[in-house]
């Protein structure tokens, strides 16, 4: 204690204190930080090579050789296999044209080619990997929890049952009814385009699976007849006028024509 009292005004003391604080912060961070997503190391080097060839032929124009990005498109180092599987697997990439957002279209590559591209991009830097079948299995999720989570996290853009909705400047949140569970999971994990990233801290794997369980039940037959697109009162009002008033006005004209 006496030693501390004698030396605390030493001119080297602030430096020492700063070093200690830095070491302590770094140490605590290293202990607490979630383990970084690591690319699945199952990819063979042959797959990575063929992925690189495909990338050079189809993607490098915009994303640059080595996927380091250009003015036209972002760097793909560290986006992980999940992002590639989503973007290429839903046909969004390679992009057809520039516009408010890159839209889904018929898929341009077969499953092996997509896997090769994903392996190549994953080899460039660690990023989220493609989820396993178990992780996206709707049967293992709870649709009730999923609906509650969907309501607070997704419905703002994708509509209450995932029918899709509008965003600003011509962008839109697409309908989720045709999206596969794997692509749903990857979208939440990587946040494509305008979508935010829902990482493990926001939505755990189980919660993502619950959401998938809810979404995969939507878009089919609904109780009460034709769902009219599940987009709410506007389509109901439109059909009330077209079908309801249409039929009733027809009947009125028919009755009115019946004697005079």
């Amino acid at each position: 204690m006496n030693w501390l009292a004698a030396h605390r005004h030493d001119r080297r003391a602030p430096l020492l204190l700063l070093l200690t604080a830095l070491l302590l912060t770094g140490g605590v961070y290293a202990l607490l930080v979630p383990a970084p997503a690591v690319a699945a190391s199952t990819a063979s080097s042959a797959e990575v090579d063929s992925g690189m060839k495909l990338f050079t032929a189809n993607c490098a124009t915009c994303h640059g050789t080595g996927a380091t990005g250009t003015a036209a498109a972002p760097s793909l180092v560290g986006v992980g296999a999940a992002a590639v599987d989503f973007q290429v697997g839903t046909g969004r990439m390679p992009a057809q044209m520039s516009g408010p957002q890159v839209e889904a279209k018929p898929v341009q590559f077969d499953q092996d080619q997509i896997a090769a591209l994903a392996a190549y991009v994953a080899s460039l830097g660690p990023g989220p990997s493609i989820p396993t079948g178990d992780q996206v299995d709707p049967a293992q999720g709870d649709p009730a929890t999923g609906m509650a989570l969907f309501r607070t996290n997704c419905a703002q853009c994708h509509n209450a049952v995932g029918a899709g909705g509008s965003l600003s400047q011509g962008k839109f949140a697409p309908s989720l009814w045709q999206t596969t569970p794997t692509h749903l999971y990857e979208a939440m994990l990587t946040g494509p385009q305008s979508m935010p990233v829902f990482n493990q801290a926001t939505l755990t794997s189980q919660e993502k699976r619950d959401i998938i369980a809810f979404v995969s039940e939507q878009g089919g037959t609904q109780p009460g007849g034709l769902s009219l697109g599940s987009i709410g009162p506007v389509s109901e009002g439109l059909w009330a006028w077209v079908v309801g008033l249409g039929l009733l006005l027809g009947a009125a004209v028919w009755i009115g024509a019946k004697s005079s």
Binding site: A160, A163, G164
Partner: peptide, 18 residues
């Protein structure tokens, strides 16, 4: 489809009757 009311969520395509 809409769920029980809670002031926080608002879903896309929220409109009143015509």
């Amino acid at each position: 489809n809409y769920g029980p009311y809670d002031p926080s969520p608002v879903s896309a395509g929220s409109q009143p009757d015509w």
